[in-house]
Design a binder for these strands. Structure first.
Lengths: 299, 299
DNA sequence: GGGATGGATGAGTTCAATTCATTCATGAGA
DNA sequence: TCTCATGAATGAATTGAACTCATCCATCCC
């Protein structure tokens, strides 16, 4: 069984031995020389042998003291080096943010320059993936994810906004009212999960009260950004997230010809509970909250 | 400049990580699990990153924790090994006792068996030398030395007894009264120092008030034990230390034919101030004190 | 000789380490 | 499904080791 004297005695001895002076050791450790004296005496008593010869206004290491000093110095140096490395790493200024490729492309990328300008010392890494990233494992610091809070039982999930879905089309199609859909092509995006609450054309048509339109007909894309591209090109009408088409709406390459808007899912900002809330991460969080606190129309 | 978190936090973390359990770490360190929990949290906050994943009734090291653990374990193990070696050395059970050859032979050796019987685990090394042993340098732990306390300004000197000197002779010589010395041979022992207070025949004759006897005549020995041998053999009368002829007086191979006894020097037990008073040394000291606390006649 | 320097001693003080009381989240067994 | 056991977390209260202050001692240097 390992037995050690009080660690404070070891630290005091090591500092005094390194300096060959109780006074300077006290200065280094920010205590009085008396504290050093007491600690070293305690250590000598624990070991049962003197570690210093006391001379007037001076101390000299004994042979035993010479044996002990390098062991302690090497050990404490290794401790400090390792902890310094871990501390520096924990204070890194790179924040990895995970989101779906469409969200990354249509929402984050257009805004990243503004964040960069506000916080030039923080390197934001975007991780675009459809996979459920294990934020807990440390691959990503933060994630933007649709779903319900209960979808992430082991994580800290903060709701940012509820996404809204509406028909979007190129103004060149001249659509005016819902019944115009009867002569239009529907553009679908695939949802990964078959959830009855997925904002699909079938769901929209039901809420709009439209009959006689085949909800499954039309163009189908696995990537939302491709669906938007097709809509902009005039290939049809997409039922799409308002968040992700803000640029196109602003430039009128896409319009919302008619309602209704329907609710999609809540967008959550997700963090692992064991990830310390470092300042860079907190900064990214604050920025995201600010972006969603402002109404989309105010952009 | 080396910076370290409180060492107690490192110790708590290392124990918990080794055991993968706060509870068992607490048992090892003889504290409550709460203390471990607080210390580890403090360390995690100092470093800025979690070192354990907390699970129900269980903790699992993070990658950072895995980095830190071996460094701390190696360091603390090295500390403990080195200190254990120094401690064991300081607790050695050999005590080196220095005395003059005559004292070693006539006083210590006859008593060493009894000490050995009382303290069988202590190895007493007798260092018989006429030289002034540098107790401070560590060659001897203790020394028995005649002289005044001021003779050993850098050492701790404790008076044990004042030696007494009287004429001793073989009973076969049939000496009865001081004037019988006129027809006897005087046996002298050499003193290393020419000190007027040396217990010599000249000094004794003066105190006894005897005239007409040549104080310098007779047999002269550099070794006191040889002087005693000569007296036992009936070669003459020695003026001798009562301490060193106790065996001979007891067996009546020597007698004290007449007085007076005169004072010799004080016998001191001498120790270096920087020599820790280990238990074995204290035991030898105690034994010596005990031996001199008893009256010589009670042996 | 006097002042500066730095270590030692021991009583008193301080504050970091620790405990206690309570809560929480399983996990296992009936 | 319920109950009990287990072990980690939180935070206020307590404790005791670390530390300070006051004083002394032994040089050392001017």
């Amino acid at each position: 069984m390992r037995r050690l004297p009080p660690l404070a005695t070891l630290r005091a001895f090591e500092a005094a031995a390194r300096h060959s002076s109780f006074k300077r050791a006290a200065e280094e450790l920010h205590v009085t020389p008396t504290a050093i004296s007491h600690q070293i005496r305690q250590l000598e008593q624990a070991i049962g042998t003197p570690l210093f010869e006391r001379r007037t206004r001076q101390v000299v290491l004994t042979p035993e003291g010479h044996v002990l000093l390098p062991v302690l110095t090497d050990g404490f140096d290794a401790f400090a080096r390792t902890i310094e490395g871990l501390t520096r790493k924990s204070r890194r200024t790179t924040v990895t943010l995970s989101a779906t490729p469409a969200f990354a492309a249509k929402w984050l990328v257009p805004r990243i320059a503004a964040f960069r300008k506000a916080r030039p010392n923080i390197d934001l890494t975007l991780l675009a993936t459809l996979d459920v990233v294990d934020v807990k494992s440390g691959v990503a610091d933060l994630a933007l994810r649709y779903g319900r809070r209960s979808s992430y039982p082991d994580l800290i999930a903060e709701p940012l906004t509820i996404d809204r879905f509406a028909p979007v089309a190129s103004p060149r199609l001249g659509l005016k009212k819902p019944s115009d859909l009867r002569s239009a092509t529907l553009i679908h995006s695939d949802w990964r999960r078959n959830d009855p609450r997925n904002p699909t054309w079938r769901h929209w048509l039901k809420i709009a009260g439209l009959d006689g339109i085949d909800a499954r007909a039309g163009l189908r894309f696995s990537d939302e950004t491709h669906a938007i591209q097709a809509a902009v090109a005039g290939n049809g009408v997409a039922l799409h997230s308002m968040l992700l088409v803000q640029e196109e709406l602003a430039t009128r390459t896409l319009v919302v010809p008619f309602g209704p808007e329907i609710d999609g899912f809540t967008l959550h900002l997700v963090r692992g509970p064991e990830r310390p809330l470092t300042e860079p991460i907190a900064a990214v969080q604050g920025w995201l909250r600010g972006e969603f606190a402002r109404k989309p129309h105010q952009r």
